[in-house]
Every structure is written in C-alpha cells, then in structure tokens.
Design a protein around this nucleic acid. Structure first.
Length: 888
RNA sequence: GUGUGUAUAGCUCAGUUGGUUAGAGCGCCACGUUGACAUCGUGGAGGUCGUAGGUUCGAGUCCUACUACGCACACCA
C-alpha cells in the first residue's frame, strides 16, 4: 500500500469496525477443546444483563483481552468464555420500574408468571447491550459460547448443586435473624449490606416502673421499634439498677408490661446503662430474648411500614412512625433528652435504603466445611492472588465465615427446588428437595428464588456445560486467570473457589488478578448521580478503542485506585498516531522488504550497523520486559515498556538515524529498510495485545500479512537469540550507541545555547573518550553527523585544540567550533559548574573507597563498580579541565 | 477496635533482592513547520522522596513511632 493510502492522522472508527467483524466472522475468537496445543482459558466476570458498559468494565475486560491475545500469540489454544448474569434483585427492580413508568403496572398487579415473562421480553430486547458494547472495545471473547446464568444448562447446574448440598446437610431452612431490604422486600446476605456513617439521634425515653416508684431511662436510635420491646435489660453488676431486676416497666404508647432483666449485653458505660430489648428486630436483642425466653414481636410489614401490633401507628412508614412516637412521648413528658450522634447504619447494596434486621424463614448454606479446602488452595499456592495482599482479606473472611442466606423473596431468579405438602403455616409440613417436582398429590413449590450469586459461584464450570461431562471442561477447566475487582472477593471469588473444590474437586482458576478501582480526577467514585461517570462509547468514538485501552492501562497505578479523566486518553491516541505515522513514513520509502520476518542471514553476515544492533537489542529487551511483566500481571509496566520502545527508541532515534541511509540509496538503503521492516513487524506484534485494531491494520497496510491472515495468530516476539540469530556484540552496541546519542543531545544543547537555528548546518568536533569509542563512532559516523545536522563532523582522539564551546560526556567531548563567537564567560561558568559537581562526586566516591567499613563489607562487585566510576569521573574532570584551559 | 494500603517534580504516577548523580507522562519555559507525525520535534527549568528516630559501610527502598488520607471487616441500646 502506498503512502497516499494512509491519511496523515490515524482514524480509528472505520478500521476498528472492519477488523472486529473480520475477526468474529472468521471465528478467530473460537477456542477448540480438542486441540493439541496447550489450553489457556478465562471466564468473564459476567456483567449484569441489565448493565451498560462502564469504565470499570473497560479496565477489567481490557486486561483480560491483553492476557488472552498474548497467550493466543504464544501458540496456546485460548478460550475466553463470555456471558451475562441475571442479577436477581437489580433486574427485577429495573424492569419493575420500567413497567411502572411505561405501562403504569407493577409486578404485583401482573402476577408472578406474567412478570417473569415480561422480564424475559425485556432481556431479549435490551439485555444484550453490554455484550454489544464489549465488542466495541475489541474483546476477543468466544461469542459462540456466550451463556446467561438462567440458561437451561446453567439452571440445571444450580438445581443439582442445591440438591447435592441439601442431601449433604449443608443447606437448611430455618427462622433466623436476617437482613431485610424493604425496597426489594427480600432477605439479603450479609455481604449485600453496606454500612455508612450517618447523622442520627440518640433518644432517651422514660419507661415508667409499674409500681409507680419512678422510671427507667432507656436510650435508643430506633424509637419506632419500641412496639416490639419485650424487656429492658440492665447489667447484673450495675449498682444503679441491681435492685430493679425482676420488676416491670410499663411500655409507653402501649398498655404492655415488660420485665427488667439482668443481662451482660447491657453495658453500664453506654447510654444510660438500660437497654430496651426488641428481640425480633436486633441481632443482639435476639440473643437476649432467647436467653430470657422473651416473646418475639414483629412490628413491621415487608415494605418497612408498621404492622397491626403498633396500634394507631399501624400502616405508617417506619420514619413517619419514628417521628410520631417521639412527638407523642414528648407530649407525655417521657422524653428525657435527645442527643445528636453519628453512627453506622446498614443500607441495602442494591436498593440503597436502610435495611431492617428481622426474624424470618430463610434458606441457608452452612459454609464452614466448604471453606476449608478453599482456604487451603490459596494457602498452598494452588491459587495465587495478585496483588498478593488480597489473600489476607480472603483468609480473614473465610476463617470467620458465616452461613449464607440464599433465599430471596423475589421472582426473577432460580426458584428453589423444594416442595412442601401440608398447611403453609405448619412448621412441620412435609418438605421435598429434588431436581424435579415430587410425585403425588398436594405438593406445592417453594416461592423463593435463590441469591444471584448462587448461580454465579458455579460460573467457571457451569459455563462449560457442567453437570454434563463435556470436552470443554476436560480441556479448559480449571481456567488459568481470573480478572476481577476486589469488591467482589467475598461475593464471587471466594465462593467460586469453594464451589470448584466442592463440585469439581478442582480449583476453578490458578491466578486471580484484582484490578484497581477507577475514580475521577479528584478521587471520587464514579457514579451516575455525580455525573462523573464517562460513557466509554463516547470515549471510543472520540479517541478510539485502542487509545482507551492503552491509556487506561498506561495510567493505572500498581494496586491503588486509578484517577481517570477522558483527557488521559490523549496518551493512547497520540501514541497510536505516532506509530501510524512511523509506518506511514516507512511506506513512503517503497515496498516492504523480502524476508522482513527473518534477518538471520543479515545478522550473521556481520553487516549490521551499530545503530541497527542497538535497535534490535532494544527490541529484545522490550520483548523480555513485556514477557516478564505480563507473567507477573504487571500490565502497567508492559505498556510503559512498549511506549518507551516505540516513541523514544524507535521513532526518536532509530528512524531518525535511518534517514541518512535512505538518502544514500542502493544496498545501504535496502539493508536499512529490511531492518526497519523487521523492527516494525516485531513491535506491532508486541503491541497487538494492547492495541489490537491499530496493529492489525498496520500489519496489513505494511504488507506483513496476506489478506487472509491475522496478527492475532502471529507469533508473539521473542529475543533474537531465541530465534537463533543472536545480535553480535549487543551489549557493546547498546552501551556505545547510548553514548553516541548522548553526545548528539549534547551537541544539540550547544547549538541551542548559542542560539543557532536548528536548520542551520554547522561543524562539530568530537573527541572520543577512548579508542573503542573512536572506532565505534567512526563506523557509525553517517547517522552521527545527520542527527547533529552537521555540515562537517570530525571524530578524533584529539581535543579540538582551540577555543570552542564544549560539553563533556561519558563517550567523550563534543565541541562546537564557532570562530570568534564563543562566549568565554558563559562557557567558563558552565564548565566551572560542571567541574565543581565532578569534584564533589569524586570527593564522595573517594571518601567511600577510603571508608574501611565500605571496603571490608560491601560486595566486591560494588567496590569494583565504585572504583571504575571514580576512574571515569576523573577522566571526565580532566577533559573538563583541558577544555577550560583551552577557552581561556 | 482489628486488618490493610497510600504519602516521591505544579499534577498523575514509576522506582527491582538496600549500592550512592531519583525517572516518565502531562503541565510550564525557549526555539522550531519546503513533507512520517503540531495528536509533532529539539532543548530547558522543576524534587532535602510525609515527619522523627533507628539498623547499616551505605536508606526513596528495611525497622519503630507519629501525622495525613483511603479501603475492608467488626462494633454501633
């Protein structure tokens, strides 16, 4: 393709769509379970089916895509299993809301069956949004294997697991204190409760003693629950109240009489030392109630309103009732005082409303036995966490694990496979648990559905067809890497490990990489209400998917929160454009070289220039760096390595150094182009996992691939040594070329200091530091000269020998011969400053070497290095002094 | 309360098992556009590495305490 075919700026939109379609239509994402290659697999953390793509998804899926594309290029048989989660409560409330807004009906008026049908309809119409959006990002998921947690097969897995755990005695049903969400009108697990600090009041009420001898003052933050009080507790050792134990008080606003009991739970230091006991609405009070055999009085309806036991307050909302209670107590003179306090209150993760704790019949999973092998798997290193510290969080939770409340009083989800026979209110009615309904008359199914996570925890194998035996499981299970946010370590990661160990007898994945949390530029969480949550699709439209992917990894710090703003995507966009133009420049020099992929003959011929060896060595180092970085999940480091390679080493130095050789033409140009092509093809492959679209486009544009080939399956670069063509004298070429480039920068500084236009050709003189440098600089003098934009460049072992501004560097000194224009004063100041610095370093280094402690204790290598350093400092000083004396 | 993290240039962050001139990007300043790229180039300014101790021949790096800001869990009448 000619340069005319390449616009001056990279325009991603059309290119991205073109290649994604090509990849997907040609089945390039598909992983086959019976390959003789090494398997590599990832399961996607299934996004909510109602969801739309967020920056969090972008980060998470970019990282997974980097991993899978990298492994694919290393010749492994890769499969990334995608899908979505039915997200019980979230989806149910979302569809409920939509129905209310659009049709004016809610789920209750529709009834269970009709409502569920509507949810499926809704899912069919809008549910695929996030899946379509993920494609825009370039994710190479195996879409043929897309699954949904309520697909038939996955539902089967859920039932099997439920029955299996029930039969093992790990699942039980019982009346327990649970977290209740009045918005969803369902029980929640402990993990679904978020504690937030809120400003509240501490009300001190007078509870009159029945015998008329006064009153007790109890303090509470929840006045409305007083209708459920069945005792007042005092500490048995509390001298203030000891004599009252066994007496009763009259519960205000009711006509009930309740006992004063002695219980350790009452802390004399807290509040008034007297605590109202509401056993049906507080976990601690529940325990007290059990110890003292108190009645359990439920005072609330499912929606958080007060129920019939509350007399005239019945039907009021809990907050309304709170106000009314306080007002009425005040009127009766029973309010002692009201304090302002800040306290933690539990909120429902999904509903956002304050949760209630109340007694109800729910299904639970006993977790302690399940946890044991899962703890062991992380302890013994079968599963590794990155960053490693998350394993502490994991252990802490796992070692204190509580039973898991899995029943939800909603409709959208997997209905619990349990059936009852007998009166619904009979606690001893018959129960049957099985995959299918029992035979016989009179059975009716449990109304509740399962917690969403009860299907998600099976994801790594249910997605592969479990409980059927499938080739997918045989080949791809356990998966290799899991990439997810640390916020779901309990919800999902820990439970998947337990499920894998229990049902497959094998861990579900080997490595877990926990991503950073994305925040806005000033560190706030991204949220819709703050309006600081960028739409990734807008970002992709503006900057390109590759730019977004690259930038977000580039700016992601190691293990702490990411501060994101759209402007940061300029990093990736500019980088893409830079590479695009480098390739555009190359294509202007003529057709792609033959044998661009293998230059071993050239390497062995001994014809490589120093610059070329330097470039190839840089590529080697970068390939090694990226390999190492990705093996340790250091995405950030990998991206920085390729950025540095492309922009600095390749564009700023190597291409610039090539230009003079292109101008020379003939064999010189042909060799330069071939090495350049080799380098471009290599760095495109290095970059492909990070910027898939751009690299595919350029690989074709440049002619590295035939029309029916894809860079997706090109080999991920290894070092030239691994290719069987080690670069001769690579280390020396690296060192001496660096020195040469350093001298060139020095020369440019001289030019600027003397206000000489960059375009003006002028003479330079270089005094090489030693014979080795001299020989190397002479061999590469063509680019040396052109990079300096010099009219003449003399390289010698001699000083320039007259008054000229100079800079002294490790490779030697560079002089700018300016007859008569030298600013002696300025030069003297500059050189004196350098001399002073050098003297300081020499003094310090000598002091170190004269320190007996250093010489006797430091390793020999450090001592040798220090000595060598001192020598070079002294040499440098000498050159500075010589130059100084010549100026004067 | 327990655990855990962070503090380095104006901003956002790198900085290997301690090795002695602490780096990058952005921003800033100066100069530059007859063609790879102004989404660019060349050069420059800018940091006593949160504070105080300690270990060591040597500390941004290890230890202790403190300060500030996070996060998780627990408590929360």
């Amino acid at each position: 393709m000619s340069a005319e075919g390449m616009p001056k700026a990279y325009e991603p939109a059309g290119i991205e769509n073109k290649w994604y379609q090509y990849w997907e239509n040609n089945g390039l994402f598909h992983g086959k379970p019976n390959s003789d290659k090494k398997p590599y697999s990832i399961v996607i953390p299934p996004p909510n089916v109602t969801g739309i793509l967020t920056m969090g998804h972008v980060l998470n899926n970019t990282l997974q895509d980097i991993l899978i594309r990298w492994h694919r290029m290393m010749g492994e048989e890769c499969c990334w299993f995608p899908g979505t989660d039915h997200a019980g409560i979230a989806t149910e409330s979302k569809v409920d809301k939509v129905l209310r807004e659009t049709e004016g009906v809610d789920r209750r008026t529709l009834g269970r069956e009709e409502f569920i049908k509507r949810v499926w309809d809704w899912k069919a119409q809008y549910g695929g949004t996030i899946i379509k959006q993920l494609r825009k990002l370039g994710t190479s998921c195996d879409w043929e294997r897309e699954r949904f947690t309520m697909d038939e097969g996955l539902s089967e897995a859920v039932k099997q697991v439920f029955v299996q755990l029930y039969n093992k005695g790990y699942i039980y049903r019982g009346k327990r204190m649970v977290n209740w969400c009045p918005a969803a009108q369902s029980a929640l697990s402990d993990e679904e409760v978020i504690y937030k600090e809120v400003n509240g009041k501490f009300w001190h009420f007078r509870y009159p003693l029945t015998d008329g001898s006064g009153y007790l003052v109890v303090a509470t933050t929840r006045p409305e629950t007083m209708f459920g009080d069945t005792a007042v507790a005092v500490n048995p050792e509390d001298p203030r109240y000891k004599h009252l134990i066994g007496k009763t008080v009259k519960l205000p606003l009711t006509d009930r009489e309740i006992p004063i009991v002695a219980d350790e739970h009452a802390d004399p230091e807290k509040g008034t030392g007297c605590v109202k006991i509401t056993p049906a609405h507080d976990p601690n009070d529940y325990q007290v109630g059990k110890r003292h055999d108190l009645p359990f009085i439920n005072v609330m309806n499912r929606d958080g309103s007060m129920n019939s036991v509350c007399g005239k307050y019945a039907g009021m909302d809990r907050y309304e009732c709170r106000k009314a209670c306080v007002a009425d107590l005040e009127a009766q003179g029973l309010v002692e005082k009201i304090e302002d306090i800040v306290h933690n209150v539990g909120f429902s993760e999904r509903g956002g409303v304050e949760i209630e704790t109340l007694l109800s019949d729910q299904w639970f999973v006993k977790m302690d036995e399940l946890a044991k092998p899962a703890i062991e798997a992380v302890k013994n290193g079968d599963i590794k966490f990155y960053p490693e510290r998350w394993s502490k969080t994991y252990f802490h939770w796992m070692e204190n694990i509580q039973d898991w409340c899995i029943s939800r009083q909603i409709w959208w989800g997997h209905r619990i496979p349990a059936w009852y026979r007998g009166d619904i209110n009979d606690e001893n009615r018959e129960v049957y648990v099985g995959v299918t309904a029992p035979e016989g008359e009179g059975w009716y199914q449990e109304e509740d559905v399962l917690d969403t996570w009860f299907s998600s925890w099976l994801w790594p194998f249910s997605i592969m067809g479990w409980p059927e035996d499938t080739k997918e499981q045989e080949f791809f299970y356990p998966t290799n890497d899991l990439v997810t946010g640390p916020d779901i370590i309990f919800f999902w990661v820990a439970r998947m490990i337990m499920a894998g160990c229990e049902f497959k007898g094998k861990i579900p994945f080997k490595n877990v990489y926990f991503t950073s949390i994305i925040r806005d530029e000033i560190g706030r969480k991204l949220s819709k209400s703050l309006g600081n949550s960028p739409d990734p699709l807008d970002v992709i439209a503006t900057y390109g998917a590759d730019a977004l992917r690259f930038s977000i990894v580039y700016i992601a710090p190691v293990g702490i929160d990411i501060r994101y703003s759209n402007e940061k995507c300029e990093i990736g966009r500019n980088f893409a454009n830079k590479l695009w133009n480098a390739c555009r420049f190359r294509s202007m020099q003529g057709a792609v070289s033959e044998n661009f992929a293998d230059i071993s003959d050239l390497v062995n011929s001994g014809k490589l220039t120093g610059d070329e060896k330097w470039m190839l060595a840089k590529l080697d180092a970068c390939a090694t760096d990226i390999q190492k970085a990705l093996e340790g999940f250091n995405f950030h480091q990998a991206v920085h390595a390729i950025y540095e390679l492309v922009w600095s080493s390749f564009c700023d130095w190597f291409i610039e150094a090539c230009k003079v050789r292109f101008a020379t033409g003939g064999e010189v140009k042909a060799q330069a182009l071939r090495v350049l092509d080799y380098a471009i093809w290599k760095l495109l492959r290095l970059l492909h996992p990070f910027m898939p679209f751009l690299t595919e486009e350029l690989a074709h544009q440049m002619g590295f691939l035939a029309e029916n080939e894809s860079i997706m399956y090109a080999q991920f670069p290894v070092t030239m040594e691994a290719e069987g063509a080690a670069i001769p004298d690579a280390a020396e070429a690296l060192e001496l070329t660096d020195r040469k480039f350093e001298l060139i920068s020095g020369g440019r500084t001289l030019r600027l200091n003397y206000d000489i236009a960059p375009g003006k050709k002028l003479d330079f003189h270089v005094k090489a530091a030693d014979q080795r440098c001299y020989d190397f600089f002479m061999a590469g003098s063509d680019s040396f000269k052109s990079l300096l934009n010099a009219e003449n460049l003399t390289i010698s072992l001699e000083d320039y020998g007259s008054d000229a501004p100079a800079t002294v560097l490790s490779g030697g000194a560079i002089f700018l011969p300016l007859k008569g224009v030298i600013d002696v004063a300025a030069e003297t100041v500059k050189l004196e400053k350098q001399k002073k610095e050098l003297l300081g370093w020499i003094k310090g280094t000598e002091a170190r070497l004269n320190n007996p402690g250093f010489v006797s204790r430091a390793p020999q290598k450090v001592i040798d290095d220090t000595k060598a350093q001192l020598e070079s400092l002294k040499e440098k000083l000498q050159r500075v002094e010589t130059t100084l004396s010549q100026i004067k």
